[in-house]
Simulated scan of single mutants.
Amino acid sequence: MQPELHSEITCPQCGHRKVETMPTNACQFFYECEGCHALLKPQPGHCCVFCSYGSIPCPPIQLERQGQGDGCCRADSSTKA
């Protein structure tokens, strides 16, 4: 089963919501709220902003829950050393 690629991010500061397309090849560590311009970062223990503030977690976490993959979008990053 393919992971869902769209997640609605909700800003914890102003409540602004927006549906965004999640990257499949890297973590999105920062997200600027269009409502209040707050710079969102993952909460402790989360790999990306979608896992912290999204309606659906990132694709690697979705796949891990299905018994596939290692559950970390950072492992998919092409810039990983």
Results as ranks from 00 to 15, higher is better:
57 P>S: 07
68 Q>N: 05
41 K>C: 10
43 Q>R: 15
4 E>G: 00
47 C>L: 05
11 C>N: 10
81 A>G: 15
8 E>G: 05
48 C>K: 03
73 C>M: 10
47 C>W: 00
34 E>G: 15
39 L>H: 08
65 R>Y: 10
20 E>P: 10
59 P>Q: 02
42 P>F: 04
39 L>E: 05
74 R>S: 06
33 C>L: 08
20 E>L: 05
53 Y>H: 09
80 K>C: 04
73 C>E: 05
81 A>F: 12
36 C>Q: 13
19 V>Y: 03
67 G>H: 03
42 P>N: 12
71 G>F: 01
27 C>T: 02
68 Q>Y: 10
16 H>P: 00
11 C>H: 09
45 G>V: 05
34 E>T: 00
41 K>E: 15
3 P>C: 06
10 T>L: 09
16 H>L: 01
25 N>D: 14
45 G>C: 12
80 K>I: 13
44 P>G: 06
49 V>W: 06
70 D>F: 03
21 T>W: 13
56 I>V: 15
38 A>L: 07
78 S>M: 06
15 G>N: 11
32 E>W: 04
24 T>R: 14
21 T>M: 11
10 T>K: 08
16 H>G: 02
19 V>W: 01
23 P>V: 00
56 I>E: 09
15 G>P: 00
44 P>S: 08
5 L>W: 00
5 L>C: 02
46 H>N: 15
59 P>G: 07
63 L>Y: 03
59 P>S: 06
54 G>T: 05
17 R>A: 08
33 C>D: 07
18 K>D: 12
66 Q>T: 05
65 R>I: 08
67 G>M: 12
49 V>R: 01
25 N>M: 06
77 S>Y: 04
68 Q>K: 13
36 C>K: 11
80 K>A: 14
76 D>W: 12
35 G>K: 12
63 L>T: 01
78 S>F: 09
20 E>Y: 06
69 G>K: 00
30 F>C: 07
48 C>W: 00
